[in-house]
Simulated assay, not measured.
Amino acid sequence: MDSKIHCQMNICGGDFTHVRKCFRDWKSQPLVYRWNQRMFEGKQEVRPLPGRVFNNGEVAHQALARVCGPDDPYALAAEIRDGERDLWLVMAAFEEEG
């Protein structure tokens, strides 16, 4: 059987305390494309991506995609400050067999 990696993402504003609250809320919500599965299922917590604040969402997305692994028990959050807003992109990787 082949396996492939897919990512789940969400975004919110505020400080990292707010990101943790959003993460807890998201974990109770079903996936839009798979109603029997919860968002970020199996991930115990969210951690900030250390050492960098991004000025572009695409760059933050690429950085998270490079470091998120399906065996990680957590999601990672990258801070984005684009001059207008302060946002966090939260991502977790999952392995899917098929």
Rank of each mutant, 00 (worst) to 15 (best):
G69Y: 09
E41R: 08
Q44C: 04
N36R: 14
G57M: 01
W26P: 02
G69F: 07
C68R: 00
V90F: 09
G42E: 05
G57C: 03
I80A: 06
M1L: 13
V32R: 15
P48K: 10
R47E: 08
V59R: 14
V46C: 01
L76A: 01
D86Y: 02
E45K: 12
D15N: 15
Y74H: 15
V59D: 15
H18S: 14
L76I: 10
F23R: 07
A60V: 00
G57P: 04
A60K: 06
Y74W: 13
R81D: 11
E96Y: 08
R66M: 13
R34M: 11
Q8R: 13
M9K: 10
K27S: 11
G13M: 09
L49I: 06
V90N: 05
D72Y: 10
G42T: 05
G14P: 05
D72H: 14
A93E: 10
V46D: 03
A63L: 09
Q44P: 05
E79F: 07
A77D: 05
V32C: 01
D72K: 05
D82T: 08
K27D: 01
H18P: 03
M9S: 12
R52T: 12
S28P: 07
D72T: 05
M91R: 08
F16S: 04
G69E: 14
G13S: 13
P48G: 00
M1C: 04
E84N: 13
